[in-house]
Simulated scan of single mutants.
Amino acid sequence: MTVEPTPAPRDPNRWLRRLPLVTGLLGSALLVINRLAFTPELLTSQSRSDALGILLSAVLILTGLLWQQIQPLPPQTAPLQGIPGCDWHPDLSESEKLELAWASHTLLSTTAARTVVIWVGGRTLLQRGLLANPGQMPSIQPKSVLQRVLQTGRPVYLVDLKLFPARAEFNDLLPPGSQAVLCQPIGQKGCLILGSDTPRSFSRQEQTWIAAIADKLAATLLPSPPGRGAGG
């Protein structure tokens, strides 16, 4: 099953970016028409005015062309070849299921994530959203990206998967067509893996929100170290 992406919003500044180019072309066209049709006798002052007008038109045209390149269009979404689903680890308690259901639903509904995988303590606890293999919980063996997340305790954000050779690590976790992946640590023994259908899709605000949810999952799913909270 292929899930078609939502159309990307049209660039609200597209006419503003085109304004210098259109103005420059219009101005140069009017100067040529004025010279050929309405100037029977060419005066020195007229020549200077025409030269100045052509120069200003050229600057506007150049500015418009530069704006087209400097201000790129928003990234386009891609179709994901996945099937909607939600799979749990069989040994989860009801309270753990409730926590994971809340976290995954929140991530799917408030961020750019289309796939959520929660891996803690060597077990895949949940996969939800658009899945590559629904009904088959993936067995995750941490490789370069996940090992880096676990060792450093810092998230890794692959903003455009096709640019990273390490994307092969997520072939069995994310549906084909996934464009970006964010790996957020859950304590020191887990990782929250989010896939998206759009490059550069997770904003800074969303990354902060994802980190807060990962911290809450760590407090719920990971046991506290012995002696934590005891009086000294």
Rank of each mutant, 00 (worst) to 15 (best):
G187N: 06
R167S: 10
S144F: 11
R148K: 03
D160A: 14
V159C: 07
D160Y: 12
K162T: 14
R154T: 11
T152C: 00
L182T: 01
E169Q: 04
P185D: 02
Q151D: 11
Q188V: 11
L182C: 04
L173M: 09
S144C: 06
L194R: 10
Q188D: 12
L146G: 05
L192H: 06
C191Q: 09
L173N: 05
P176T: 05
I140W: 07
K143F: 04
A166T: 11
Q147G: 12
G195T: 06
P175D: 10
P165I: 12
Q141W: 09
I140K: 03
V156D: 03
V159Q: 15
L146H: 00
G190Q: 04
T152V: 00
D160H: 15
T198H: 07
P142N: 00
Y157R: 02
T152W: 01
V145I: 15
Q184V: 04
S178A: 13
G187Y: 05
Q184D: 00
R167T: 13
L150K: 02
D160C: 11
V181D: 03
L161A: 08
R148G: 01
S196M: 05
G177R: 10
C191V: 15
D197Y: 05
N171K: 13
P175M: 10
G153I: 05
L173D: 06
D197G: 08
A166K: 06
R148L: 01
L192P: 04
R148E: 02
L161H: 08
L150C: 06
V156G: 00
I193R: 03
P199V: 14
S196H: 03
L192A: 07
L163Y: 12
Q141V: 15
Q147S: 15
L146D: 00
C183K: 03
Y157I: 04
L174F: 05
L158C: 12
K189A: 08
I186D: 05
L163V: 09
S196A: 15
S178F: 07
L192N: 02
P175F: 09
C183D: 05
P165C: 12
A166G: 04
P155L: 13
L161T: 12
L146F: 05
F170T: 02
S144A: 08
G153L: 03
